[in-house]
Structures are given as C-alpha cells and as structure tokens.
Amino acid sequence: MRKLTLPTVLLFIALALTTLSNAQDNIWTPETHMKVKRIGGTAISPDGEYVAYVVTSPVMEGEKSEYLSQIWVAAADGSFNLQYTRGEKSNNSPAFSPDGKQLAFISQRAEKPQVYMMRLMGGEPEHWVSPIPTSSL
C-alpha cells in the first residue's frame, strides 16, 4: 500500500472538516422544515406533453400564518417549467380539458372556492361553474 503523504493527510482532514461543517449547516430545525415546498395535485395532459402540479409554501410575514398553493405547468420533456397561477389566494386541483388546450382548477380567489378554466397557453381565467358548497370539498 502506498504510504500516505502529508499533503494527502491534510486533504483528508480538510474534506472531513468540510463535511462536518456542512452537516452542521444542514441540521434539521423547524425553520428549515418550513423551507421545503410541498408538491401535490399533479395532472398530466391527454397527449402526455404537459404536467400541471401544485406547489404549496408557507406565508408567515407579519401576522400571516397560512399555506399558499399555486399551480405550475411543466413540459414533460423538461423544456419549460412555469408558474401558471398567481396571487394571494390559493389555486388547486388542476385538470386538463379532453382536448388538452385548457386547464381547469379550483381557486379561492372569490369568497368561496370555485372552478375556473384558463387556456393552457395564456389568457385570463374564466369563471366556469357556480360556487362549490364548502361541505362537499
């Protein structure tokens, strides 16, 4: 076996220390737990080209303590990944239309949760059906 030279030993020590300090930086705390965004509510377009999904993150500025969900749409080939809905109210449960050109979703933007439709490639959301009774959600 080759004899360990001083520079090699120093390198090992440096690597070990780096790993150790990284481990301390990565220590689990309630705060770090909150930084992990949750992914859910996925839907795949009928042609398999697009994936809609929901990203949920905490909002804790000032008195606020709530989760905000927004819909993202990504191309299955990885060529793009865009935030599809925005705003201070949550948008959930994406579903593609049978022709794949529109995306329906439930939004909290009005007083009660309602279903909206939006053209997959841009446009304003259209209110689609009357309010959903909260008890049925």
Binding site: P30, E31, H33, M34, P58, V59, M60, S65, E66, Y67
Partner: peptide, 12 residues
Amino acid sequence: PREPKFLMDVSE
C-alpha cells in the same frame, strides 16, 4: 396543527 407558525411552534 395546520398553520405554518403553529407547525413550527409545536416541534419546538
């Protein structure tokens, strides 16, 4: 707990 601040608080 559902609210993020409470979720953080309960662990602590």
